[in-house]
C-alpha cells in the first residue's frame, strides 16, 4: 500500500509515494540518499539515527512514515551549512569528540536539540541530553567538552 506523504525535509517541501509503515530511517537512507543518518541498532537504543522532527529530537528508526505527514524533518545534512553547525563542528573537532564517527551525526543532532532548548547547559544536563546516544569510542567526556565549548562560542546563536 503506497501513500503520498507530504513533509518538509531539510527545508524542502517533499512529496513521496511511500508505504506509510516504512521506517523514516529507511526512507532517509534509501529513498532520499541521506546516509548521514546511521542505523546502529534499529531499536531506539543507540541514537545513531537521531533527527529532528518538528524541532524535537527523535530516533528515525522508531518512526513510521505515516506519522511524518505534514511534519518537518531535519537530518545532519540539513544542519550542515548553518552557523550553528559551524560552531558545533569546530567544537567537536577541537574537543576531540569524534573517533569512529558512527555516532557523530546523531550526537550533533542531540547537541543541537539541547542547545535550542537550553543554550547554556550544565554538565549534568548535557549528560542527560546525550544519554540516548551511545558512543563506544570516546567515553563521552570529550563530547561533553565539545557541547560546553559550543555553548560558550555560540552564545546568543541558539
Amino acid at each position: 500500500m503506497i501513500k503520498e506523504i507530504n513533509f518538509k525535509l531539510n527545508g524542502k517541501e517533499t512529496i513521496l509515494e511511500i508505504h506509510p509503515l516504512k521506517r523514516l530511517l529507511d526512507v532517509l537512507r534509501e529513498d532520499c540518499g541521506l546516509t548521514g543518518v546511521k542505523e546502529g541498532c534499529g531499536e531506539g537504543e543507540c541514537g545513531a539515527c537521531s533527527v529532528l522532527i518538528d524541532g524535537i529530537l527523535a530516533n528515525a528508526c522508531l518512526y513510521p512514515m505515516g506519522k511524518i505527514q505534514g511534519k518537518e524533518v531535519v537530518t545532519i545534512e540539513g544542519l550542515v551549512g548553518t552557523d550553528r553547525y559551524a560552531i558545533l563542528k569546530e567544537s567537536f573537532e577541537q574537543a576531540g569528540a569524534v573517533q569512529c564517527g558512527f555516532c557523530s551525526p546523531g550526537m550533533i543532532m542531540a547537541a543541537e536539540s539541547l542547545l535550542r532548548r537550553n543554550p547554556h547547559p550544565l554538565e549534568q544536563q548535557i549528560r542527560e541530553a546525550i544519554s540516548g546516544n551511545l558512543c563506544r569510542c570516546t567515553g563521552y567526556n570529550m563530547i561533553l567538552d565539545a557541547v560546553q565549548m559550543a555553548a560558550k562560542r555560540g552564545d546568543g546563536i541558539w
Binding site: K22, G42, E43, G44, C61, P64
Partner: peptide, 20 residues
C-alpha cells in the same frame, strides 16, 4: 493502534530496509 510506536516499531521490526 500506534501512538508513539516506540515499543511497537521494535516489536514488529524486521531489519534494516524492511517494513515492520
Amino acid at each position: 493502534v500506534l501512538a508513539g510506536g516506540t515499543d511497537l516499531m521494535v516489536k514488529k521490526k524486521q531489519g534494516a530496509g524492511l517494513l515492520p
